[in-house]
Simulated scan of single mutants.
Amino acid sequence: MKFIGIVGTNAVKSTNRQLLQFMQKQFSQRAEIEICEIKGLPAFNQPEDRVAPEKIKTLSDKIEAADGVIIATPEYDHTVPAPLKSVLEWLSYTSRPFIDKPVMIVGASYGALGSSRAQAHLRQILDAPELKARVMPSEEFLLGHSLQAFDDNGNLVYEDKVTELEECFDQFLLFVDITNQLVKDHRFQANQNKKFTWEKATEGGND
Results as ranks from 00 to 15, higher is better:
2 K>L: 08
5 G>E: 02
5 G>W: 01
6 I>G: 03
7 V>Q: 03
9 T>I: 07
10 N>G: 05
11 A>R: 15
14 S>P: 10
15 T>H: 12
16 N>S: 06
19 L>W: 06
22 F>H: 14
22 F>Q: 06
23 M>H: 02
23 M>V: 02
23 M>C: 13
24 Q>W: 01
24 Q>T: 03
27 F>D: 11
27 F>Q: 10
34 E>T: 13
35 I>A: 06
37 E>H: 08
37 E>F: 00
37 E>C: 01
37 E>G: 03
41 L>I: 13
43 A>Y: 12
45 N>S: 13
46 Q>D: 14
48 E>H: 05
49 D>L: 03
50 R>H: 12
51 V>E: 14
52 A>R: 05
54 E>Q: 14
54 E>D: 14
54 E>M: 08
55 K>V: 09
56 I>R: 10
58 T>N: 12
62 K>E: 11
63 I>W: 04
64 E>C: 01
65 A>N: 12
67 D>G: 14
67 D>E: 14
69 V>H: 04
70 I>C: 05
70 I>T: 04
71 I>C: 07
73 T>S: 15
73 T>A: 12
74 P>A: 04
81 P>E: 05
81 P>M: 06
82 A>S: 15
83 P>R: 08
84 L>N: 11
86 S>W: 04
86 S>A: 11
87 V>R: 03
87 V>I: 14
90 W>G: 08
92 S>A: 15
93 Y>Q: 04
93 Y>A: 13
94 T>D: 10
96 R>P: 07
98 F>W: 08
100 D>A: 11
101 K>S: 01
101 K>F: 00
102 P>N: 09
104 M>R: 04
106 V>I: 15
107 G>H: 06
107 G>F: 07
108 A>P: 13
110 Y>Q: 15
114 G>L: 10
114 G>M: 10
117 R>G: 06
125 I>T: 13
127 D>Q: 10
128 A>D: 15
129 P>K: 02
129 P>H: 03
129 P>T: 04
138 S>N: 15
143 L>S: 04
144 G>M: 09
148 Q>L: 13
150 F>W: 03
151 D>K: 08
152 D>A: 15
153 N>F: 02
153 N>I: 01
154 G>Q: 09
155 N>W: 01
158 Y>M: 10
159 E>V: 09
159 E>W: 00
162 V>S: 03
164 E>A: 15
166 E>Y: 03
168 C>W: 02
169 F>P: 08
171 Q>I: 00
171 Q>Y: 05
172 F>R: 10
172 F>A: 09
174 L>R: 12
175 F>H: 12
175 F>K: 11
176 V>C: 14
178 I>C: 02
180 N>P: 02
181 Q>I: 00
184 K>V: 13
185 D>Q: 09
185 D>V: 00
189 Q>E: 12
189 Q>T: 12
190 A>L: 05
191 N>A: 13
192 Q>E: 13
195 K>F: 00
195 K>A: 14
196 F>K: 13
197 T>G: 08
201 A>D: 10
202 T>Y: 10
203 E>R: 07
203 E>G: 00
